[in-house]
Amino acid sequence: MAASTSTRLLRLTLPLVKTHGFTRDALALSVLHLPSPESHSAPLSDAAITALFGQEIKAEHSLINFFFDEGIEHMKSRAQAFSDSNGRPPSIKEVLEERLKFNEPVLEHLPNAFASLASSLSSAAKLGPFQVFSVDPLPGLRHALRIADEACYLSADTSTELSWYARRASLCAIYTAVELHQITSPHTTSQFLESLLTSSSHLKKSFDEVGLFSSYLFKSFRAVAKSAGTL
Protein backbone atom coordinates (compact mmCIF):
# COMPACT_ATOMS: atom_id res chain seq x y z
CA MET A 1 0.00 0.00 0.00
CA ALA A 2 2.79 2.39 1.01
CA ALA A 3 4.84 1.70 -2.08
CA SER A 4 1.87 1.99 -4.41
CA THR A 5 0.94 5.47 -3.13
CA SER A 6 4.49 6.71 -3.60
CA THR A 7 4.67 5.11 -7.04
CA ARG A 8 1.37 6.68 -7.99
CA LEU A 9 2.56 10.13 -6.94
CA LEU A 10 5.90 9.63 -8.70
CA ARG A 11 4.05 8.69 -11.88
CA LEU A 12 1.94 11.85 -11.59
CA THR A 13 5.13 13.85 -11.07
CA LEU A 14 6.86 12.72 -14.29
CA PRO A 15 4.87 15.06 -16.61
CA LEU A 16 5.72 17.93 -14.23
CA VAL A 17 9.48 17.34 -14.54
CA LYS A 18 9.46 19.13 -17.88
CA THR A 19 8.47 22.41 -16.20
CA HIS A 20 9.75 21.95 -12.63
CA GLY A 21 12.76 19.67 -13.03
CA PHE A 22 13.60 16.73 -10.77
CA THR A 23 12.73 18.75 -7.68
CA ARG A 24 10.75 18.58 -4.46
CA ASP A 25 8.49 21.26 -5.98
CA ALA A 26 7.46 18.87 -8.74
CA LEU A 27 6.75 16.18 -6.13
CA ALA A 28 4.71 18.66 -4.07
CA LEU A 29 2.49 19.47 -7.04
CA SER A 30 1.76 15.83 -7.89
CA VAL A 31 -1.22 15.64 -5.50
CA LEU A 32 -2.99 18.40 -7.43
CA HIS A 33 -3.21 15.97 -10.35
CA LEU A 34 -4.80 13.11 -8.46
CA PRO A 35 -8.21 12.23 -9.93
CA SER A 36 -11.13 13.71 -8.00
CA PRO A 37 -12.28 13.18 -5.28
CA GLU A 38 -8.71 12.36 -4.15
CA SER A 39 -7.29 15.56 -5.64
CA HIS A 40 -5.84 18.03 -3.11
CA SER A 41 -6.42 21.76 -3.08
CA ALA A 42 -2.84 22.59 -2.09
CA PRO A 43 0.59 21.11 -2.88
CA LEU A 44 2.17 18.71 -0.39
CA SER A 45 4.13 20.28 2.45
CA ASP A 46 7.86 19.70 2.80
CA ALA A 47 7.24 17.46 5.80
CA ALA A 48 4.90 15.30 3.72
CA ILE A 49 7.43 15.02 0.87
CA THR A 50 10.11 14.02 3.37
CA ALA A 51 7.78 11.43 4.93
CA LEU A 52 6.95 9.85 1.58
CA PHE A 53 10.12 10.22 -0.46
CA GLY A 54 13.00 10.92 1.94
CA GLN A 55 14.87 13.87 3.36
CA GLU A 56 16.33 16.74 1.30
CA ILE A 57 18.12 15.41 -1.79
CA LYS A 58 16.87 11.84 -1.25
CA ALA A 59 13.40 12.86 -2.43
CA GLU A 60 14.92 14.15 -5.68
CA HIS A 61 16.86 10.91 -6.04
CA SER A 62 13.62 8.93 -5.63
CA LEU A 63 12.17 10.90 -8.55
CA ILE A 64 15.29 10.53 -10.73
CA ASN A 65 15.51 6.78 -10.07
CA PHE A 66 11.82 6.42 -10.86
CA PHE A 67 12.43 8.22 -14.17
CA PHE A 68 15.24 5.73 -14.93
CA ASP A 69 12.96 2.80 -14.05
CA GLU A 70 10.27 4.16 -16.36
CA GLY A 71 12.94 4.51 -19.07
CA ILE A 72 13.69 0.79 -18.80
CA GLU A 73 9.96 0.00 -18.96
CA HIS A 74 9.69 2.22 -22.06
CA MET A 75 12.54 0.27 -23.73
CA LYS A 76 10.79 -3.02 -22.95
CA SER A 77 7.40 -1.94 -24.27
CA ARG A 78 8.87 -0.45 -27.47
CA ALA A 79 10.97 -3.57 -28.07
CA GLN A 80 7.89 -5.75 -27.63
CA ALA A 81 5.91 -3.61 -30.09
CA PHE A 82 8.81 -3.79 -32.57
CA SER A 83 9.04 -7.60 -32.28
CA ASP A 84 5.29 -7.94 -32.75
CA SER A 85 5.24 -5.84 -35.91
CA ASN A 86 8.52 -6.99 -37.53
CA GLY A 87 8.78 -10.59 -36.42
CA ARG A 88 12.34 -10.10 -35.12
CA PRO A 89 13.89 -8.48 -32.06
CA PRO A 90 15.10 -4.88 -32.46
CA SER A 91 18.79 -4.15 -32.97
CA ILE A 92 20.95 -2.60 -30.24
CA LYS A 93 20.82 0.71 -32.09
CA GLU A 94 17.02 0.70 -32.24
CA VAL A 95 16.70 -0.13 -28.55
CA LEU A 96 19.16 2.54 -27.46
CA GLU A 97 17.50 5.11 -29.73
CA GLU A 98 14.17 4.43 -28.03
CA ARG A 99 15.78 4.97 -24.62
CA LEU A 100 17.37 8.22 -25.78
CA LYS A 101 14.01 9.42 -27.13
CA PHE A 102 12.58 8.90 -23.65
CA ASN A 103 15.07 11.51 -22.39
CA GLU A 104 13.98 14.18 -24.86
CA PRO A 105 11.15 15.91 -22.92
CA VAL A 106 13.34 16.42 -19.83
CA LEU A 107 16.69 16.86 -21.54
CA GLU A 108 17.39 20.29 -20.07
CA HIS A 109 16.98 18.91 -16.52
CA LEU A 110 19.21 15.85 -16.96
CA PRO A 111 22.53 17.62 -16.17
CA ASN A 112 21.09 18.69 -12.80
CA ALA A 113 19.77 15.18 -12.21
CA PHE A 114 23.17 13.58 -12.85
CA ALA A 115 24.89 16.23 -10.73
CA SER A 116 22.43 15.55 -7.91
CA LEU A 117 23.02 11.79 -8.11
CA ALA A 118 26.78 12.28 -8.17
CA SER A 119 26.75 14.49 -5.10
CA SER A 120 24.73 12.24 -2.81
CA LEU A 121 24.56 13.16 0.88
CA SER A 122 26.36 9.98 1.85
CA SER A 123 29.44 11.19 0.03
CA ALA A 124 29.35 14.62 1.67
CA ALA A 125 31.88 15.27 4.40
CA LYS A 126 31.64 18.05 6.91
CA LEU A 127 34.77 20.01 7.67
CA GLY A 128 33.84 22.40 10.45
CA PRO A 129 31.31 24.85 9.07
CA PHE A 130 31.98 23.75 5.48
CA GLN A 131 30.15 21.02 3.62
CA VAL A 132 32.53 19.32 1.21
CA PHE A 133 30.96 17.27 -1.55
CA SER A 134 32.86 14.52 -3.27
CA VAL A 135 31.76 13.24 -6.64
CA ASP A 136 30.28 9.76 -6.65
CA PRO A 137 30.22 8.33 -10.21
CA LEU A 138 28.57 5.03 -9.19
CA PRO A 139 24.88 6.01 -9.60
CA GLY A 140 25.54 7.27 -13.14
CA LEU A 141 27.54 4.15 -13.97
CA ARG A 142 24.81 1.89 -12.58
CA HIS A 143 22.24 3.71 -14.73
CA ALA A 144 24.28 3.18 -17.93
CA LEU A 145 25.10 -0.46 -17.08
CA ARG A 146 21.43 -1.22 -16.49
CA ILE A 147 20.52 0.20 -19.88
CA ALA A 148 23.37 -1.70 -21.59
CA ASP A 149 22.28 -4.97 -19.99
CA GLU A 150 18.62 -4.42 -20.89
CA ALA A 151 19.52 -3.44 -24.46
CA CYS A 152 21.54 -6.67 -24.87
CA TYR A 153 18.66 -8.73 -23.50
CA LEU A 154 16.02 -7.03 -25.68
CA SER A 155 18.12 -7.36 -28.83
CA ALA A 156 18.58 -11.09 -28.09
CA ASP A 157 22.36 -10.78 -27.71
CA THR A 158 23.97 -14.21 -27.65
CA SER A 159 27.41 -13.42 -26.26
CA THR A 160 28.70 -15.70 -23.53
CA GLU A 161 31.55 -15.87 -21.01
CA LEU A 162 34.06 -13.02 -21.28
CA SER A 163 32.43 -11.49 -24.36
CA TRP A 164 29.18 -11.17 -22.30
CA TYR A 165 30.96 -8.74 -19.97
CA ALA A 166 32.92 -7.06 -22.77
CA ARG A 167 29.72 -6.44 -24.76
CA ARG A 168 27.98 -4.81 -21.79
CA ALA A 169 31.01 -2.78 -20.79
CA SER A 170 31.44 -1.40 -24.31
CA LEU A 171 27.72 -0.61 -24.60
CA CYS A 172 27.81 1.10 -21.20
CA ALA A 173 30.66 3.34 -22.39
CA ILE A 174 28.88 4.04 -25.68
CA TYR A 175 25.57 4.86 -24.02
CA THR A 176 27.24 7.17 -21.48
CA ALA A 177 29.04 9.04 -24.28
CA VAL A 178 25.87 9.31 -26.39
CA GLU A 179 23.74 10.49 -23.46
CA LEU A 180 26.28 13.22 -22.68
CA HIS A 181 26.34 14.13 -26.37
CA GLN A 182 22.52 14.23 -26.39
CA ILE A 183 22.49 16.81 -23.59
CA THR A 184 24.67 19.20 -25.60
CA SER A 185 23.65 18.35 -29.20
CA PRO A 186 20.30 16.59 -29.25
CA HIS A 187 19.90 16.82 -33.05
CA THR A 188 22.95 14.72 -33.89
CA THR A 189 22.41 12.02 -31.27
CA SER A 190 21.35 9.31 -33.70
CA GLN A 191 24.37 9.81 -36.00
CA PHE A 192 26.73 9.89 -33.03
CA LEU A 193 25.26 6.65 -31.67
CA GLU A 194 25.61 4.99 -35.06
CA SER A 195 29.23 6.12 -35.47
CA LEU A 196 30.17 4.81 -32.00
CA LEU A 197 28.44 1.47 -32.58
CA THR A 198 30.24 1.11 -35.94
CA SER A 199 33.62 1.99 -34.39
CA SER A 200 32.92 -0.46 -31.60
CA SER A 201 32.13 -3.27 -34.03
CA HIS A 202 35.35 -2.44 -35.98
CA LEU A 203 37.26 -2.47 -32.74
CA LYS A 204 35.71 -5.80 -31.77
CA LYS A 205 36.60 -7.22 -35.19
CA SER A 206 40.19 -6.00 -34.80
CA PHE A 207 40.42 -7.51 -31.33
CA ASP A 208 39.00 -10.80 -32.59
CA GLU A 209 41.55 -10.85 -35.43
CA VAL A 210 44.40 -10.05 -33.05
CA GLY A 211 43.17 -12.86 -30.81
CA LEU A 212 43.01 -15.30 -33.72
CA PHE A 213 46.48 -14.32 -34.96
CA SER A 214 47.89 -14.70 -31.43
CA SER A 215 46.42 -18.17 -31.11
CA TYR A 216 48.03 -19.20 -34.44
CA LEU A 217 51.33 -17.72 -33.32
CA PHE A 218 51.13 -19.57 -30.01
CA LYS A 219 50.33 -22.85 -31.79
CA SER A 220 53.28 -22.33 -34.19
CA PHE A 221 55.73 -21.64 -31.35
CA ARG A 222 54.44 -24.72 -29.55
CA ALA A 223 54.94 -26.87 -32.66
CA VAL A 224 58.48 -25.44 -33.19
CA ALA A 225 59.32 -26.15 -29.56
CA LYS A 226 57.97 -29.70 -29.86
CA SER A 227 59.94 -30.45 -33.04
CA ALA A 228 63.10 -29.05 -31.42
CA GLY A 229 62.55 -31.47 -28.55
CA THR A 230 62.18 -28.72 -25.96
CA LEU A 231 58.65 -29.82 -24.99
Binding site: M1, A2, A3, T5, S6, A51, L52, F53, G54, Q55, K58
Partner: peptide, 18 residues
Protein backbone atom coordinates in the same frame (compact mmCIF):
# COMPACT_ATOMS: atom_id res chain seq x y z
CA UNK B 1 0.35 4.32 11.49
CA UNK B 2 -0.61 2.82 8.13
CA UNK B 3 -3.56 1.00 9.70
CA UNK B 4 -4.90 4.38 10.78
CA UNK B 5 -5.00 5.42 7.11
CA UNK B 6 -1.67 7.24 6.73
CA UNK B 7 0.76 6.58 3.91
CA UNK B 8 4.38 6.07 4.87
CA UNK B 9 7.68 5.40 3.15
CA UNK B 10 9.13 1.89 3.01
CA UNK B 11 9.66 -0.02 6.27
CA UNK B 12 13.33 0.91 6.64
CA UNK B 13 15.32 3.39 8.66
CA UNK B 14 15.36 6.68 6.74
CA UNK B 15 11.94 6.14 5.16
CA UNK B 16 8.93 5.19 7.34
CA UNK B 17 11.00 6.08 10.38
CA UNK B 18 14.34 7.72 11.19
Amino acid sequence: IRNAGFKTGKDVDGAAWT
